[in-house]
Structure formats: structure tokens, C-alpha cells
Design a protein around this nucleic acid. Structure first.
Length: 644
DNA sequence: AGCACGCCGACT
DNA sequence: GTCGGCGTGCTC
């Protein structure tokens, strides 16, 4: 900047207060003019100069139109521009969309700073001049995978979709563009990293997941900022990674519970990716075996182009499709013994069961009353055969259980978990090695014939070469969840297990019921989930609409109801009590009006935050509070506190 | 949040 | 008369 001019810095304050979530202008003192840059973290005075606040520089200006007294920037915290303008733009858009603060988004996007790691990084790295690259095609696709595994040159197998993702990232790298890969869990990250290694991409892979140490995460964040072309891989917040020359964002299994952001402003990485795709004009891929409702909606709107990938595979056979109303007395269908015994000579066999442990419940033998924990009321079960009953919720042992209603002390187990299934099948499959994989025993990988794997959904080991057969038991348990997305979630859990089979291996499922049985047999997943979304359309529910879940004190909720009266909303559910002196209201509206609703709710949040606080005199009264969640997963059991 | 401003009751 | 309680409002 030329001398003689006054330079101003527009900043966004690092404060959680909603009323401060807008730009503030400060004068840049002469001493800082040479060093200050957009994206840096600085310290600024706030009110009278005694208070200080961290802030990010989002713009440098020669003049401002603020009429009040302008204070000076105090100091520069870090010279590294940790908040590039594009990232602030994205954070602002997401915050506005979610009725939240940009700062809350930035807290997810920018990892905590580690000064020592930063010094080490800066002294080691030579900065290349960053050259801009022509944007990608701006395509948006849903990749529907048929399943299957692929053998890497290392001899280890990985799911076929991971090699597809790795190849797409490698192709971007070839074109001098960066890729961001967002995955639900650490297992997926490890598998895709393995697939990337096999393609010789190791040196370009930058992990940003929470599994790293804080220092490593900050170092990797700095590397992303450096301008180098990279393949970022991580969990949901990686979707914000400020890579240079973004060519492609890929998400896997966006309907997975782990993809839901529990932190304010609760922006789903899929929605962030959709916004970012438009802002960066990059390519976007969402992939899965069964599309989630949100993706199915976008496919049916033509916003996401559907691509079916992978070879034709053996049909998925529902063994009980015709016997829905006559539940079999034997949980394990005979096909498991016949087809299973035949297959196991040829390779590992996978049996997916719904629950871990030995029994899923305990019942009094004389009166049949279901046994519950004396401490928390949770259901008792047997962790292993002959074990004392223990609580599924709090884990407490209940060695001397006495029935509430008949005082009997004799109990019997009901329902079979992975351990009991392993016992039963182990006896039938004499000579087979029986492996139990569930939350408590994580097993990454199995190989070889005569291996029988019993696993719960999401914990199935990869079999080198693929499983020779896959059986899904307990379908009715997966379908029993009291959840809007139950059918989609159940299909996804089953097909994810089936996907680990060899292409020509048989897959049998029991307890699916006739409707899902047919969907599985015909592999009509897109059509089926689309039909679920159409039903929601009739009901005016997400993802056909957008919803805001508003919780707060009675007076705050009353203010919301008054304020939204004039808005073009679809429906208002509630208010219902949702806690001590707290009410909940659910507002739905069409997508095109959601921003208007968010803006209105945001204004009320600011107003509520500035409302009178409790004082000595009004001590008895509750503080006025207001919380807004604008995501589309609020009907799921995990958000309403179901236990499993 | 935190701090200043400002408007009514007990005080030297 | 004014000292200081605490609601109210604002933060470049």
C-alpha cells in the first residue's frame, strides 16, 4: 500500500456471540501496513479498548463508510493467511443457510493452531508460486456402486468403490487439480488411503481427520493452504478444506449417521459440498450402494446425474419374501447351512447379524417379564454365554436379578446376538475358524477358506478376494427401528454387507419382508428411495422440504410464532415441551423460501441474545433462550435419543 | 460476554 | 444535593 493512504482491515470477530457475527472495520496502524494480509488472524480492541478479541482479516480497504470512531488493529497473531477469502465466503453462505454464525463454521473448518508445528512447517517448506488452473467441468453425479472388492498389487483387497474414488483423485492430480474426499468413518479413510497408495498417490494424500494429533492436523492444514495440489481425505469437516485449484469433491454414503454434523450450525457435509460445488464450479460426486433420501431427491430433480458403476452381480435373494406373515421359528434359515457349507470350502463366509453380544434380552422364566436394569431401567442382556445379565445402556452387571412382578430369580435369554450366532453356527460348521467382529472386537480383514465371520452392520471385515457367500440374518430387527429413514438404512446396511462378496458369490437375506425383498432382488434402490421421498412430499417433510427445529423458552418460542406468521412456510408442528421450561417447534418450508426463514430466525436469535439477562431482582425467571437447527435429519432416532 | 451509560432510592 | 444500585444497549 502506498504511504499517505490510510489502510483499513475488515475483520470477522472470533466470538460466539450471534450479535457480533458481521464485519467490523479497523484502521491498520503504520507499523502493520507492510505485513497485514487477508486471511491472517489478528487481535483487535472491542469497545473502549480494554477488551481484546481475535479476528480474521477478510478484506483490506482504502476507505470505509463507518461513521463511528474507528479503532486500530492491535497486532497480528499469525502471518499465515489461515482463512482464504473463498473459505470465508463458503462459511458465510453456510451460516446464512443454517441460521447460524460464520464463526461456528470456521471453528469446524480451521483446526486449532499449534505454534510449534507451524514454525517447523514454515521453516521446512519452500513456497511455490501458486498458479491458477482452469476449473473442472462443474459436473454433479451420484455414483451408484454394485459392490465387490478389488485386489491391490499388495495382495490385499479393498472395496471396489475405494479404487474408483482413488482413480478419480489421481486423474484430478494429473490435471493439476486438488480433490477432497469426505468419508463417514476411519475404516473408510484407511481403505481409500490404501487404494491411493496403490496408485502411487501417497505423497499427495493429506489427511485432515480427527484421528491425527492436533499438531499433525495443523501441519496438514498449513500444507493444504500452501497452494500445493493435494488429495485431502477426512471426515465431514474436511469438506471445507481450502485446497488450491479444487477440481473434485467426493462424498461416500452421505446418509450415514456419522456424516451428520452435531455441532452448530449443524450443516451436513453433503449440503456444504453442494454449495461449494456451485461456488468453486468443481466436480461433485456422491457415492453409495443405496442413495440416501436427500441424494434420491437430487437425482429425481436431475440435479445429480445418476451413474451406475461396477459389474453386474449375482441377485440378492430374500429367503423369506413369501412368508412375511408366518415368521419362522428358526432364526437361521436352512440355506445358511446348505449354501454356506458349500461356499466355505471356497473362501470366507460372512454372516451379518443385527446385534452384538450373546442374547439381546433377558426374560423372567416364570412370568415372562422383560428384565430391566435396576439402576437406569435399560434392557438387560447376556454379553456372552453363561455371563451374568448386564445392562445394554449403562453396562452395570445384575448378577442377582429378582423379577419385579413375581420375585423369581430365574431368567432366560431371548434373542440372539453375534456371540450366540457364532456358537450355533460354529457347531454346524465343524472345522471352520469362527471370527466374531462387532463394536467390541474390530477386525479389519480376513482371508482363506473355512473362515466363518459373524459381524454386526458396519463392522464387517474385508475378505481378501471377497466373501464366497454372504448371509444377512435378523432383517426384521433392522426394519423395526422407529425412524423415518429405517427402510433406506436397513437396505444400506444389508447391501453394504453383500458388497463385500465376490461378484459371483451368493447373497441371502432373511427377515427383509416382501417389499424390501423385491427391491433387493431387482436392485431397484434408486426407484425405491425416490418413492420414499415422494411420500415425504405428500407429508411436507424433509428432505422434500426444509425444516427448522426451534427450541427455547416459552417466550422465545412465542416470539418465533409471531414473527413467522407472515412467512411462506409449509407447516408448523408444535410447540411441544422438550425439556425443563423448554419448548420445541418444527417449521417446514419449501427450499426456495428456506433462506427467508433462516434470516428471520437468525434475527430472532440475535434479538434473544440481546434480551434482558437474569438479574438479582428477576432471578426466578428463566433466561430467554433460542436454538435453531436447520437440517433434514431431525426425524431420525439418533437425534431424538433412541438407544440401540 | 463484558462494559459503559443512565435513571431512581438511601446517604453524608 | 450525590453515590451507586442494576436494567439496557452496544461493541468498528
Amino acid at each position: 500500500m502506498a504511504k499517505g493512504h490510510t489502510l483499513y482491515a475488515r475483520v470477522v470477530l472470533d466470538s460466539p456471540l450471534p450479535q457480533l457475527d458481521h464485519p467490523f472495520d479497523y484502521r491498520v496502524p503504520d507499523a502493520l501496513v507492510e505485513q497485514i494480509a487477508v486471511g491472517q488472524k489478528v487481535v483487535v480492541p472491542l469497545r473502549a479498548g480494554n477488551r481484546r478479541c481475535d479476528a480474521w482479516v477478510i478484506e483490506l480497504l482504502d476507505e470505509i463508510d463507518f461513521s463511528g470512531r474507528v479503532a486500530d488493529v492491535d497486532s497480528i497473531v499469525t502471518t499465515v493467511p489461515v482463512l482464504p477469502v473463498e473459505l470465508y465466503g463458503l462459511a458465510r453462505t453456510i451460516a446464512d443457510r443454517q441460521a447460524g454464525s460464520a464463526v461456528d463454521v470456521l471453528r469446524l473448518a480451521i483446526p486449532p493452531r499449534y505454534v510449534r508445528a507451524e514454525k517447523a512447517f514454515l521453516s521446512a517448506v519452500t513456497h511455490d508460486a501458486v498458479t491458477k488452473v482452469a476449473p473442472a467441468n462443474s459436473s454433479r453425479e451420484f455414483h451408484l456402486f454394485s459392490g465387490g472388492v478389488e485386489e491391490l498389487p499388495t495382495g490385499r483387497s479393498v472395496p471396489r468403490w475405494t479404487t474408483s474414488y482413488a482413480a478419480a483423485a489421481a486423474q484430478q492430480m494429473q490435471a493439476d487439480r486438488s480433490t477432497i474426499i469426505v468419508l463417514p468413518d476411519f475404516r473408510d479413510i484407511a481403505l481409500v488411503v490404501e487404494a491411493l497408495d496403490a496408485l502411487g498417490q501417497t505423497e499427495h494424500v493429506v489427511r485432515l481427520d480427527a484421528g491425527l494429533t492436533g499438531a499433525a492436523r495443523w501441519t496438514n492444514y498449513l500444507r493444504v493452504l500452501s497452494g500445493e495440489r493435494v488429495i485431502v481425505i477426512g471426515n465431514r469437516s474436511s469438506v471445507y478444506a481450502p485446497v488450491a485449484s479444487l477440481g473434485l469433491i467426493m462424498l461416500w454414503d452421505d446418509a450415514n449417521d456419522a456424516m451428520r454434523e452435531p455441532l452448530a450450525p449443524y450443516a451436513h457435509p453433503r449440503d456444504v459440498a453442494l454449495v461449494r460445488q456451485e461456488q468453486a464450479q468443481c466436480d461433485l460426486v456422491i457415492g453409495g450402494f443405496v442413495p440416501g433420501p436427500a441424494s434420491a431427491r437430487l437425482i429425481s430433480l436431475g440435479y445429480l446425474q445418476l451413474r451406475e458403476l461396477g459389474p453386474k452381480r449375482r441377485p440378492l435373494i430374500a429367503t423369506d419374501a413369501q412368508t412375511e406373515n408366518q415368521p419362522s421359528t428358526t432364526r437361521i434359515p436352512s440355506i445358511v447351512f446348505t449354501a454356506g457349507k458349500q461356499a466355505i470350502a471356497d473362501g470366507p463366509v460372512l454372516v451379518q447379524v443385527a446385534k452384538p453380544g450373546y442374547s439381546t434380552g433377558v426374560r423372567c422364566t416364570s412370568c415372562g417379564t422383560r428384565a430391566n436394569c435396576n439402576h437406569c431401567g435399560g434392557p438387560l442382556r447376556l454379553a456372552r454365554q453363561g455371563a451374568n445379565p448386564s445392562c445394554r445402556w449403562c453396562g452395570r452387571l445384575e448378577p442377582n436379578y429378582v423379577c419385579r412382578s413375581c420375585k423369581s430369580t430365574s431368567v432366560a435369554s431371548v434373542g440372539a446376538g453375534s456371540e450366540k450366532t457364532a456358537d450355533e453356527l460354529g457347531r454346524a460348521f465343524a472345522g471352520a475358524r469362527v471370527v466374531v467382529a462387532d463394536g467390541a472386537h474390530q477386525i479389519e480383514r480376513v482371508a482363506g477358506a473355512n473362515t466363518l465371520v459373524i459381524a454386526t452392520p458396519g463392522t464387517e471385515p474385508i475378505a481378501d478376494g471377497g466373501y464366497a457367500a454372504v448371509f444377512v440374518l435378523d432383517g426384521e430387527i433392522a426394519r423395526a427401528r422407529e425412524d423415518m429413514d429405517t427402510d433406506q438404512q436397513a437396505l444400506n446396511a444389508w447391501v453394504s454387507a453383500a458388497a463385500l462378496a465376490r461378484d459371483d458369490a451368493p447373497v441371502y437375506l432373511s427377515g427383509t419382508g416382501p417389499v424390501l425383498g423385491k427391491v433387493l432382488a431387482l436392485r431397484e434402490f434408486v426407484a425405491f428411495v425416490t418413492s420414499l421421498v415422494r411420500e415425504r412430499e405428500q407429508l411436507g417433510l424433509p428432505p422434500a422440504t426444509r425444516a427448522a427445529v426451534v427450541t427455547g423458552s416459552a417466550q422465545a418460542i412465542a416470539a418465533v410464532r409471531t414473527e413467522i406468521r407472515a412467512l411462506p412456510i409449509r407447516s408448523i408442528l408444535g410447540p411441544v415441551p422438550s425439556g425443563p421450561e423448554e419448548q420445541r417447534l418444527i417449521i417446514t418450508c419449501d427450499y426456495k423460501h428456506a433462506l427467508e426463514l433462516a434470516t428471520t430466525l437468525r434475527a430472532l436469535i440475535v434479538k434473544t441474545a440481546q434480551a434482558p439477562r437474569p438479574s438479582a431482582r428477576t432471578q426466578g425467571q428463566r433466561i430467554s433462550r433460542l436454538n435453531v437447527r436447520m437440517d433434514d435429519t431431525w426425524l431420525s432416532s439418533s437425534t431424538t435419543g433412541g438407544a440401540s
